[in-house]
Design a protein around this nucleic acid. Structure first.
Lengths: 99, 99
DNA sequence: CCCGGAGCTTTGTTGAACAAAGTTTCCCTT
DNA sequence: AAGGGAAACTTTGTTCAACAAAGCTCCGGG
């Protein structure tokens, strides 16, 4: 039987799930603007989710101020990738059980 | 790109997701006691989630008082199964995108 | 006629999502 | 140098839902 209590609540919330999925979907980091453009989210909401994920140790970020406008890049940390893999494993169990 | 806004919030919450998964996993209905035994949830919390799903039209229920103790049985309605299928389709997209 | 369990309601607390507006920093233009 | 503007971030406040705990109701059995 699936252990739903193992479903990482930090990841499961819709907003953060979408962020984690985007970050996991490619190797290159995402800028704040790219994330904002892809997800329809207010600045405050987006940055709060990013901070929550950062505090959990799931992502790293770096602020660049070199070329043109300043921008911050975000990418999954190793623990973040691991946590997301675990999360996906449960999704897979749900899929297999529900069909 | 995945449309995360289509992620049914009624289903996505952890408690209701576990209920829907259980109900979808077999043809026979589940009794309140079976659900309560499988999911570790208080009576009030469980019944509230069931009512939320019922109000959304995602499940049907019937109260039996014939043999021995009274019991209520719950099962997915046709719209509920459809909504769950749609939900699973998005999970599948997330899985495919994250790997 | 109580006793107890099943199902359900009610109440209250806690916490999180989200929006909106304000703040800071820094580049670029004039 | 001064001001404009965009990016990133903070703050504030509202709103809503999860969840626990306790109480209520119905009904069958002893």
């Amino acid at each position: 039987m699936i252990d739903f209590s193992k479903l990482d609540k930090t990841i499961h919330e819709k907003g953060r799930l979408s962020i984690m999925t985007l970050l996991a979907s490619r190797v290159e980091p995402w800028s704040f603007q790219d994330l904002k453009g892809e997800l329809e989210m207010s600045d405050g909401n987006l940055i709060t989710h990013l901070r929550t994920l950062g505090t959990a140790g799931y992502l790293d970020s770096e602020k660049f101020t070199g070329d043109g406008r300043p921008q911050t890049l975000y990418w999954l940390s190793a623990p973040g990738r691991k946590a997301f893999e675990d999360y996906l494993a449960i999704l897979e169990q749900i899929l297999n059980m529900g069909r």
